[in-house]
């Protein structure tokens, strides 16, 4: 089973990214669950999304053993990292998370800055992160995640989102 946690600040689009990842897994005939946790605020505040992917029905729907942990703010890094293990892979937006911790496997990528630099706005950071997650986890194929993103986002934004996915996917080796 793949256990993935995406965290950041409300409004960064991480719950949407989690939903798209789960939808991509279902497109490949897998089982997937997605859950979320957030405060009462409409914007700001920390939020997390969790995605579990398996070949069998998933009973307990929350992450028990975080294999992949994405943090897009320092606050989320600190708040949702209590159960990381030495094997967890921690992916952070290196400009927004000054102090990544909890594991020796830390992947630093300037996720939000890549979005601003290449696509003109920070809006695509979540899709860049999604490309990155697919590269690291191999949870679904790159073709499937492209299809899943195209299905979810407004039609006019598909080209930019495809570009964002590619940027994320190619941001690490």
């Amino acid at each position: 089973m793949k256990e993935i946690r995406l965290s950041g600040s409300g409004g960064q689009g991480l719950i949407t990214a989690g939903i798209i990842l789960a939808e991509a897994a279902i497109m490949e005939g897998k089982q997937a669950v997605q859950s979320q946790s957030y405060g009462p605020e409409a914007r700001g505040g920390s939020s997390k999304a969790e995605v579990l992917i398996d070949d069998h029905f998933i009973y307990h729907p929350k992450v028990v053993n975080p294999q992949i942990f994405l943090a897009m703010t320092q606050q989320a890094m600190d708040k949702y990292s209590h159960d990381l293990t030495p094997d967890s892979i921690v992916i952070v937006d290196e400009d927004l998370v000054q102090n990544p911790h909890g594991s020796e496997h830390i992947v630093k990528v300037p996720i939000t800055n890549l979005s601003v630099e290449h696509l003109g706005r920070d809006l695509f950071a979540n899709i860049i992160a999604l490309g990155l997650l697919v590269k690291v986890t191999g949870a679904v194929s790159f073709e499937t995640i492209q299809k899943a993103v195209a299905k979810r986002v407004p039609p006019a934004t598909v080209p930019k989102n495809m570009e964002a996915l590619r940027i994320g996917y190619e941001s690490i080796q």
Binding site: K30, V33, S35
Partner: peptide, 9 residues
């Protein structure tokens, strides 16, 4: 909340 907000296949 667990089931109400859960997304699954």
């Amino acid at each position: 909340e667990v089931v109400g907000h859960l997304r699954e296949r």
